[in-house]
Design a protein around this nucleic acid. Structure first.
Length: 416
DNA sequence: TGACGTCAAGATCCG
DNA sequence: CGGATCTTGACGTCA
């Protein structure tokens, strides 16, 4: 079983993709951006390896305008070395990757030009996964599309258009239930008909359930039957509702209690793709909590990154977690993360913010320049008197952390 | 015609 | 001027 996350790293500096607008997508720009994004992808893959993350979705934006006629670059040839390097790492560490064209790639549209664009987009995704030399278990995830007032006809159109796809696309294509039109029952019918795997998406299923009253675990079992040997392990999407968001909005982080409850009721070996705002952070959390054995050293590593964030929200949670980590015999990863979540969810007070800022200042106070000290005191005073927010203090402290090369601080989630 | 979702570019605002 | 914050873009469907 693997647990992974989608597309981008959260809370890691220097790892974001670059993009451009169609209006300035000239050859030079596209070439520079593609190169940049592949270098970033390589870093992300390195990060995944370091953190034992073996499931990852590659962003469709990796090659800017990769499926648009404006991009005529032979990026596979130009960046062959880099692609080989990345593909080699993925294979060596047995990482499984995927791609997921968004809601605007619609294979079943009645408009032939929309279908044409969808096919072009699917071809691009297959080209990219081929360029990394990955096998057919590295999937392209697609939604069925629109309904256009007649679901049966629209399903037929999806099936017809599916058969026109290149073998390279078909062997990687998997379909997913969506939150609006095609529920898991619809998608299973299609998947079984054209003999391709089905991804069960947990949150879409809650928002758009089929009329049959089966449990989510029974639907997952039915989806499992659509995954063949060459498709690799069954994969599902898991996300939680953002408490104050619109229905379907992904939560900030994966609530570990709810996740473990879901996880413990699963049976069979499957891969779980998390869809969540804090991306890699939730993936690491869920991987550590579902490990066969407690890995206390990993919790220590996690604590190093979370501690100042927690301190800035709640000193009591900070102290409780510190205590927790001292008693290794009673340590539980789930308890650790539950406390982390409690800390993050506590409303910070002026005092807790100032306290954390002073802790961090402690790293610099012996060698900071006089005017830096002066600036820190002034910022703190302004914040204390309600004349500014906490942000300028955080920004200033991050600058110092970078200047004085305090790696420990630079990696802290306090700054994200 | 605007909302939907996603991310970063681009624009604008602020001290 | 640099940094923080708001708006736009690219895609297609649907109310």
């Amino acid at each position: 079983m693997s647990i992974g996350y989608a597309c981008i790293l959260f809370g890691v500096a220097g790892c974001s993709f670059k993009a451009c607008k169609l209006s300035n997508a000239d050859e030079d720009n596209l070439r520079i951006l593609a190169k940049n994004n592949l270098v970033i992808l390589d870093r992300i893959i390195e990060y995944n390896i370091e953190n034992n993350i073996k499931l990852f979705r590659i962003s469709s934006d990796i090659i800017p305008f990769g499926s648009h006629p404006i991009n005529q670059l032979s990026w596979r040839i130009e960046h062959k070395d880099l692609l080989d390097k990345i593909g080699g790492k993925i294979k060596e560490y047995r990482m499984r990757v995927s791609m997921h064209p968004g809601q605007y790639t619609v294979l079943n549209s009645p408009d032939p030009s929309v279908v044409n664009n969808a096919i072009r987009d699917l071809n691009y995704h297959a080209r990219f996964l081929n360029a990394l030399d990955t096998d057919a278990s590295n999937k392209i995830v697609l939604h069925i599309g629109g309904v256009y007032g007649d679901k049966e006809k629209s399903i037929e159109r999806f099936i017809e258009n599916f058969y026109t796809l290149k073998e390279d696309v078909k062997r990687r294509l998997v379909i997913e239930n969506d939150e609006k039109s095609y529920n898991i029952s619809d998608v299973l019918k299609i998947g079984n008909h054209i003999n391709i795997p089905v991804i069960f998406d947990s949150l879409h299923h809650i928002i758009n359930p089929p009329s049959q009253s089966l449990s989510q675990y029974e639907w997952i079992k039915l989806a499992q039957a659509t995954w063949k040997e060459e498709d690799g392990r069954q994969k599902i999407h898991y996300s939680q509702q953002a408490p104050e968001g619109k229905p379907g909005a992904h939560s900030k982080t994966i609530g570990i209690m709810e996740f473990m409850d879901f996880y413990n009721n699963l049976d069979g070996d499957l891969d779980i793709m998390l869809e969540v705002k804090d991306k890699n952070l939730s993936a690491i959390k869920c991987i550590i909590c579902t490990a066969d054995h407690l890995q206390a050293h990993l919790l220590e590593r996690e604590w190093a990154k979370y501690k100042y964030l927690i301190l800035s929200h709640s000193q009591s949670c900070y102290l409780e977690i510190r205590e927790m980590l001292k008693n290794k015999n009673y340590l539980s990863a789930q308890n650790f993360y539950e406390k982390i979540e409690e800390g993050i969810n506590s409303e910070p007070s002026k005092g807790s913010y100032i306290n954390a800022a002073q802790h961090i200042w402690g790293y610099f106070k012996n060698y900071a320049e006089a005017k830096e000290k002066e600036r820190f005191i002034k910022l703190l005073q302004k914040y204390n008197e309600g004349e500014s927010e906490i942000t300028p203090i955080k920004t200033f402290l991050l600058k110092l952390a970078i200047k004085y090369r305090e790696e420990y601080l630079i990696q802290s989630y306090y700054f994200t």
